Amino acid sequence: MRWSADGPVLRWRDGRSSALPWGKRVAFGVAGDGVRVCVGARGHDCPVRAAVPGRSTGARCEECARLDRAHSVAADTIADDPRPYRVYLAWFGPGMAKVGITAAERGPARLLEQGAVCFSWLGTGPLMAARRTEELLRAALGIPDRIPYALKRAVRAALPAAAAERAAELRDLHGRATALAGWPDSLERAPFRPVDHLTAFGLAGLPAPAGAVSELVAGGGVSGELVAAAGPDLHLATGSGSGGGVVVLDTRLMTGWGLGPWPGGNDGITLPVREFKEAPGVQDGLF
């Protein structure tokens, strides 16, 4: 799944795209005799078409995963990228803020892909200056550079209603960050200007999800109405059946599978679902 100016889009292997407006019926079945195959690396197919586990969000075999990360800014394997980079603070829910970097030319795409409910830029500069600033904030303020998706999903239906309240934690962190000594001289600082994605994600009034799809399986499938999307996740109203109600589908679990039409008539789900044992908003004991 990718995010366009008009919202989330599913990109298929043959280059086609499927827009995902709210209310759209998302329905597919997994080939009954299918095996999930490695998606390859850097635009190339896996040479051995290796089988990969159903619960893997990367959908790559060990060798292709190594090749993919060998050319990754996120993995710190590229140090000479001449493009300008931006440092950002992102907020996903109460107590869930992170620091990160993204290529300036990508704009807010990285934040949409991560499911950031609110974010603000911290500054722009060369890659290594952006990386040093990220490390400075992690060390001095204890801000992580990763938030587990399970935590993000659990609080989406219980976010503060007011945009100012959603931005309050970032405002405090931005102020503390800019007050630190040791920023690289080559990084141009940015003022606090929060950008809110609650409407873009369709999270206002979001029903609490029953759980999340843990993996796709051969012969299974899902059909439901799209009520929200954030990062790689689709929130689908699936009706009755196992895991009925609103279920979260991480679209990264779809890659590598052969998909076809939904075999059933009514909306439903025949995939393994990990139920939320606590109400969204509780960050301990999610499953």
Results as ranks from 00 to 15, higher is better:
residue 91 W to Y: 13
residue 217 V to K: 01
residue 80 D to A: 15
residue 201 F to R: 04
residue 19 A to W: 03
residue 247 V to Q: 01
residue 284 D to C: 07
residue 128 M to P: 11
residue 112 L to R: 15
residue 52 V to L: 12
residue 51 A to F: 04
residue 186 S to W: 06
residue 22 W to I: 06
residue 116 A to F: 06
residue 206 L to H: 00
residue 147 I to D: 09
residue 233 D to V: 14
residue 245 G to K: 10
residue 13 R to A: 10
residue 26 V to S: 05
residue 79 A to I: 07
residue 102 T to R: 07
residue 202 G to K: 06
residue 160 P to H: 15
residue 245 G to R: 06
residue 78 I to S: 04
residue 48 V to K: 13
residue 238 T to S: 11
residue 246 V to K: 01
residue 270 T to V: 00
residue 117 V to E: 12
residue 258 G to K: 03
residue 168 A to V: 10
residue 131 R to F: 11
residue 182 G to H: 11
residue 16 R to K: 02
residue 260 G to L: 01
residue 3 W to R: 14
residue 185 D to Q: 12
residue 53 P to V: 00
residue 238 T to Q: 05
residue 163 A to K: 13
residue 155 V to P: 00
residue 204 A to M: 08
residue 80 D to M: 12
residue 182 G to V: 11
residue 233 D to Q: 11
residue 226 L to P: 01
residue 53 P to M: 12
residue 91 W to M: 12
residue 161 A to D: 10
residue 194 P to G: 06
residue 254 M to C: 15
residue 242 S to G: 11
residue 112 L to D: 11
residue 18 S to F: 04
residue 253 L to D: 02
residue 58 G to W: 02
residue 90 A to H: 13
residue 244 G to A: 08
residue 286 L to M: 06
residue 275 E to D: 05
residue 247 V to C: 09
residue 106 R to E: 14
residue 245 G to A: 08
residue 124 T to F: 03
residue 132 R to G: 03
residue 185 D to E: 11
residue 85 Y to N: 04
residue 281 G to L: 07
residue 21 P to I: 09
residue 187 L to N: 04
residue 131 R to M: 11
residue 273 V to L: 03
residue 244 G to C: 07
residue 117 V to T: 15
residue 39 V to D: 08
residue 185 D to W: 01
residue 188 E to V: 12
residue 147 I to Q: 15
residue 227 V to M: 06
residue 111 L to T: 03
residue 165 E to T: 14
residue 41 A to T: 00
residue 75 A to D: 07
residue 233 D to P: 04
residue 278 E to P: 02
residue 164 A to H: 13
residue 11 R to A: 12
residue 262 W to M: 08
residue 56 S to T: 01
residue 284 D to L: 10
residue 263 P to C: 03
residue 167 A to T: 11
residue 244 G to I: 09
residue 12 W to Q: 03
residue 198 L to Q: 08
residue 188 E to D: 10
residue 94 P to C: 03
residue 269 I to R: 03
